[in-house]
């Protein structure tokens, strides 16, 4: 799902009035903390519970009262998942798909974003409007012709079919364009031009190094989105060649009633994004708060 509109600009602050700001942002009392902790618990609970079930024996899921603390059978269950389905293939496919898409989106977005922000060419504004407009288009609804195309190319059931439509995003181009607009002063590029740099060298030696923070945030979002993508891989792939998400759905749809197995697979599938999230959570929060990102 990628649908992003032009993010609204936040209301401007009224200037550096320290005392007034302190007054406005009241210090949190015990009730605020209680409410926030409740929200935090609610957010984390489903993932935590899935982990708990994954670490218990299969009969634990059907007990009353429910089990709420982890047990010692996690690795046993993980081994069972890998025995039951080709989860190794699913993980490999997901890693290949998500990494390729991430590299491509970051590269092409940075290149196009640089051109839109810092180079002058005829039709620039009109083309930029097209990019912004296409962000709101629900490309998912074109799933039937896309499937027909992939069959025609002989790509259906192969992971190319998942990778290629994800190689560029309107959001990425717009995101990088906004960043370049603010981050690189025109004088710096002018100086580079005086020294005889062509635009490609300016991009490589000036723009790209300066864009690293934004490119990293874009990369994080893109990776997580690609990893979690469900609908298109479900349509175009087959159970014999799955991504993690489609393998999960096959496992859940199977005639097994062993939900411990299914939830263990769900836990394994969540771990990679969870690691990314724990390492870079601060940047992800900052990215969402500075612009609008929709997964």
């Amino acid at each position: 799902m990628t649908a992003v509109l032009d993010p609204p600009t936040p209301v401007r602050p009224a200037g550096p009035r320290g005392r007034a700001r302190r007054l406005a942002r009241r210090v949190a009392g015990p009730w605020t903390y209680a409410a926030l902790i409740a929200v935090l618990a609610g957010s984390a609970f489903p993932v935590y519970w899935s982990f708990v079930v994954s670490s218990q024996t299969p009969d634990a899921i059907d007990t009353v009262p429910p089990v709420l603390v982890p047990g010692g059978h996690l690795f046993e269950n993980i081994a069972r998942v890998f025995d039951t389905t080709d989860f190794a293939l699913a993980l490999t496919n997901s890693i290949v798909v998500s990494s390729t898409i991430t590299v491509s989106v970051v590269l092409f977005s940075t290149l196009a974003g640089f051109a839109f922000a810092k180079l002058r060419f005829r039709g620039r504004n009109a083309l930029l409007l097209v990019v912004i407009g296409t962000q709101a288009i629900p490309t998912e609804l074109g799933v039937i012709p896309l499937y027909m195309m992939m069959s025609e190319f002989g790509w259906a059931t192969k992971i190319h079919a998942v990778i290629v439509p994800g190689l560029v995003t309107a959001f990425g181009v717009f995101f990088m364009r906004q960043y370049f607009e603010r981050a690189i002063p025109d004088e710096l590029l002018e100086a580079g031009r005086m020294d005889g740099c062509g635009s490609l060298r300016l991009f490589w030696h000036v723009a790209l190094p300066a864009a690293r923070p934004a490119a990293a945030v874009l990369g994080l979002f893109t990776f997580m989105q690609a990893w979690n993508d469900f609908f298109w891989p479900l349509v175009v792939l087959v159970p014999e060649n799955p991504t993690v998400q489609t393998a999960l759905s096959t496992l859940a749809a199977g005639y097994t009633t062993d939900y411990t197995l299914v939830l263990t697979a769900a836990t394994i599938g969540t771990i990679p994004v969870l690691i990314v999230f724990l390492l870079f959570g601060r940047q992800i929060v900052g990215g969402i708060m500075s612009g609008a990102v929709k997964g």
Binding site: L36, V39, L40, S43, A44, P46, V47, W49, S50, M224, W227, N228, F230, V244, Q245, T246, L248, S249, A252, V262, L263, A266, T267, G269, T270, V273, L274, V276, F277, G281, R282, I284, V285, I288, G295
Partner: peptide, 19 residues
């Protein structure tokens, strides 16, 4: 707390629906 509220958004829709 901010990471906490955004956690659900980064989890996979397939995994979470199954859970």
């Amino acid at each position: 707390f901010r990471m906490g509220v955004i956690l659900p958004n980064i989890t996979s829709v397939a995994a979470v629906t199954i859970i």
